[in-house]
Amino acid sequence: MEIERKFLIPQLPEHLEQYPCRHIEQGYLCTNPVVRIRKQDDAYFLTYKSGGLMAREEYNLPLTAEGYEHLRPKADGLLITKKRYCIPFGTYTIELDIFEGELAPLILAEVEFPSEDEANSFTPPEWFTEDVTYSGKYHNSYMSHHGYHPEA
């Protein structure tokens, strides 16, 4: 079970270079249910996600580089690229996603939780702004087909 909250970030925090950074490329083979392929640095995954906003089932399966390259042209919509910084925050890790290409200049922060109670009681840092957890338009699977339109 994946339980996460998602927030818009209007401005990058200082000293990002001190945190681990992953380079991610991902595409969607299906969006209902979500079936995703992802290249994260030198690792490859096939992921299934059920419906839902804050809490949903998620299964990650290892994929070979060859399997990823075979499935990559079959992805529908945009191939999403982003840099993900992993920033410690108390007992949690903030996953700060800086989108590139057609989804730039979007910056989102995600925080995963062991329970819905913890997710609901979470107090975000001051540099987080709007909580978009319950807006499906910030799901990567949605943006892969509809893009990012801040004015919408």
Rank of each mutant, 00 (worst) to 15 (best):
E4I: 07
I9H: 03
I9M: 05
I9N: 05
P10Q: 14
P10V: 11
Q11V: 15
L12A: 08
L12W: 10
H15S: 14
Q18L: 14
P20F: 10
P20N: 09
I24P: 05
E25Y: 02
G27V: 01
L29Y: 08
L29W: 13
C30H: 13
N32W: 03
P33N: 08
V34P: 00
V35E: 08
V35M: 10
V35N: 04
I37A: 02
I37C: 01
K39T: 00
K39M: 03
D41I: 05
D41R: 00
Y44F: 13
Y44Q: 02
T47G: 00
Y48Q: 04
G51Y: 10
G52T: 10
G52V: 13
A55R: 09
E57A: 13
E57T: 15
E58K: 09
E58H: 08
N60Q: 15
N60D: 15
T64I: 01
E66G: 02
G67E: 14
Y68T: 03
R72Y: 14
P73G: 10
D76M: 05
G77H: 06
L78H: 00
L78T: 03
L79P: 00
K82A: 00
K83T: 06
R84H: 01
C86I: 12
P88E: 10
F89Y: 15
G90W: 06
T91N: 10
Y92Q: 13
Y92G: 02
T93C: 12
T93S: 11
E95F: 10
D97V: 13
I98M: 15
L103A: 05
P105W: 15
L106S: 10
L106W: 09
I107T: 15
I107F: 06
L108W: 02
A109K: 00
E110G: 01
V111L: 01
F113W: 05
S115Y: 07
E116L: 15
E116Y: 01
D117I: 14
E118N: 04
F122D: 07
F122I: 08
F122S: 09
E126S: 09
F128G: 04
D131I: 10
V132K: 02
T133N: 02
Y134C: 04
G136D: 05
Y138P: 00
Y138T: 07
H139T: 05
H139N: 11
M143Y: 05
M143I: 09
S144T: 03
H145E: 07
G147Q: 12
A152L: 10
A152G: 07
